[in-house]
Simulated scan of single mutants.
Amino acid sequence: MTGIVVHPTAIVAKGAQLGAGVKIGPYCIVGDNVVLANDVELISHVVIEGRTTIGAGTRIFPFASVGHQPQDLKFHGEESRLEIGERCTIRESVTINPGTEGGGMLTKIGNDCLLMACSHVAHDALVGNNVVLANYCGLAGHSIVGDYVRFGGICAVHQFVRIGSHAFIGAQSMIDGDVIPYGLAVGNRARLAGLNLVGLKRAGFERDSIHTLRAAYRMIFSSEGTLRERVDDAAVMFKDAKLVQEVVSFISSAKDRPLTLPQTGADEE
């Protein structure tokens, strides 16, 4: 391949696969089963191990540790994988672990994600596209994060938690329950604080769609009847509203963790 630049102090295993235009800076280590697609850049002091694939155009900054064995006592050396998408930015001291036999054998991060310094993505986590983890955020094992989710600094996400697309998680929040798509969650333990209206507007959603979603939100998280009854009613009343149906489907498919509710919401099934 043409245009590959490897600094003399870097160590690249013979089995590693490097695409065109890859740049590997000083003191980096690239393992035998690593695949770096075109134009990946490792700035310096980056260590990539395991069965790890890095998508085209991704940049990884100093002291990131990518693909080392999971921090899970149940891991016994199984040949699990880590996949990182295209055009991601992985900043200093980020740690990302591959999957485990108990979680599908795969940790996956989508395209165009930003993982700021000292953030962590644990084994078997599935992260969508255009996700931002601010500094010191941690995603525990088996967590699922939808597209365009934004995390403030120093957030922690409990294992098996799902966070729906376009949600916003406020700084220093501890998320131990599922967060609906387009939701705004904040606190320790986090509570739902409304919809991510700023994010919806920035993403270009139509005004009418946002108003409809707000009406459905008020209905779903009111105090009348049970949560299940309100979700079923919203599914019927807003059957033609795409955003509402996404929220309804998300709530209905809950399995491993409780739902993050507003402060005044009843903790009910």
Rank of each mutant, 00 (worst) to 15 (best):
I210L: 12
L36Q: 06
A125S: 07
G85L: 02
R150K: 10
I60F: 08
G153L: 10
T260K: 05
M174W: 13
D232P: 00
G85V: 07
G141I: 07
V247K: 14
I60C: 07
G128T: 12
A37E: 06
T107L: 03
V198T: 12
V149C: 07
F75C: 08
Q17T: 02
I54K: 07
G57F: 11
D147R: 04
G77Q: 12
R150W: 14
M237S: 15
A266T: 11
G103V: 09
L18T: 01
F63N: 07
A167T: 11
I154H: 06
Q159N: 00
S173D: 08
E206D: 13
I54R: 09
G170F: 14
I43D: 04
T260V: 07
N188Y: 08
T89H: 15
H211V: 03
V47K: 13
A235L: 08
D233R: 15
E101G: 12
R218Q: 02
Q172S: 15
I29K: 12
V35I: 09
F61N: 00
A122T: 03
L200N: 06
F221A: 01
V236P: 09
G21W: 03
A140C: 01
A122L: 06
I154T: 04
T9M: 04
N135L: 04
I180F: 12
S249R: 02
A37F: 02
C137F: 13
A193Y: 13
I163W: 02
L82E: 13
A10F: 13
M174F: 14
H211D: 06
G128F: 11
Y217W: 07
R189V: 15
N196H: 08
H45E: 14
F238V: 02
V34P: 09
A171C: 15
G55K: 10
K239M: 15
L184F: 11
L82G: 03
S119H: 08
A254C: 14
C118V: 15
P8T: 14
F168M: 09
V131N: 05
P62I: 02
E83P: 12
E79Q: 10
Q71F: 08
V161T: 07
A122M: 06
L126R: 13
D256Q: 03
D72P: 02
G50A: 05
I96S: 04
A10R: 00
T100V: 08
K201R: 13
G57Y: 04
L261P: 13
S65L: 10
T95C: 01
T89G: 15
L73D: 04
V127W: 00
Q245D: 00
C28I: 06
I43V: 07
